[in-house]
């Protein structure tokens, strides 16, 4: 690690003020990506603005049509909450499947989506469920929020405050894990929402994306059989030691089919 300053503001305004005052500063949520990167000297922030004490970032609001989760909600809290499971079981599944118990205790919803790791689970959950991200400045739809590889539309001084998830009619998330890291080699969220069918894919490409071909097929007929025979294009997908673009494309189809079956089976 290189040397850095460490501050622990108590409010969103204070946190933003600190960020504006230091171009080299970075927010610290759970630190599950940032801290290992710093230890490897791959990241060198001049200042860490620890969000742990910032008021309001862990607040939840649970309704019948939406659940709103504060950005500092740990994966473990989301995974274990009955009010989440009874409304959006697929979201519980996403949170429960991230990393290991240590990571789930520290890692946060806001940290995960702001980081936008191309193999992270939450981006697929937000995009698949059609969530809205509330920041210190505005509301952003998931469709707008996620950009390329490790990139979002967030401004430097913009802080994720909460995420609002519409309760879907039915949804399921499945991921196929990479042998070493157990990150998603491919992860697929299939959801039938009030605004239509959404299918979001993580791990397969340089960033999370919607599989419109699958969405169209499922919109016509929300059954796994509707996806049989659809050839997913490998164009633009990742190639590495863990899988070729063709393999990732193939897994996307398989997982979408299985997730659809699961969504139907555990309809809630």
């Amino acid at each position: 690690m290189y040397p850095f300053e460490y501050v622990r503001p108590a409010s969103v305004e204070e946190a933003i003020g600190l960020r504006r005052a230091d171009a080299g500063a970075q927010w610290l949520a759970g630190g599950m990506t940032l801290l290992p990167s710093m230890k490897l000297r791959l990241a060198a922030p001049s200042q860490l603005i620890d969000l742990t004490d910032v008021e309001g970032l862990d607040e939840w609001s649970i309704g019948d049509e939406h659940i709103v989760l504060g950005s500092m909600s740990s994966h473990r809290r989301v995974a274990e909450a009955d009010e989440v499971r009874t409304r959006i079981q697929a979201l519980s599944t996403v949170a429960a499947g991230i990393g290991d118990p240590q990571v789930r205790n520290r890692g946060t919803l806001g940290g995960s989506i702001a980081n936008n790791d191309p193999a992270a689970d939450y981006p697929a959950a937000l995009l698949g469920l059609g969530a809205t991200i509330r920041t210190s400045q505005r509301e952003i739809s998931a469709d707008e929020f996620f950009k390329d590889f490790f990139e979002t539309v967030l401004e430097d001084d913009e802080l994720v405050v909460a995420v609002s998830f519409p309760v879907p009619r039915r949804a399921a998330y499945l991921k196929f894990r990479t042998p070493g890291s157990r990150y998603a080699l491919v992860g697929v969220m299939v959801a039938e929402t009030r605004d239509g069918v959404r299918v979001a894919v993580t791990g397969a490409g340089p960033g999370v994306y919607r599989a419109t071909q699958l969405e169209t097929a499922l919109a016509e007929d929300f059954r796994p059989e509707a996806l049989v025979g659809l050839d997913m294009s490998p164009d633009g997908l990742n190639a590495d030691m863990h899988g070729s673009p063709e393999y990732r494309a193939h897994l996307t189809g398989v997982l979408a089919r299985r997730a659809t079956a699961q969504a139907i089976a555990c309809e809630n």
Partner: peptide, 21 residues
């Protein structure tokens, strides 16, 4: 697998992220 990048000769399984223990 100690995997070497066929294009650069660089070892790519340099951590437990890629080396499947």
């Amino acid at each position: 697998q100690c995997y070497t990048d066929p294009d650069s000769g660089q070892p790519l399984s340099g951590s437990f992220m890629d080396y499947g223990i």
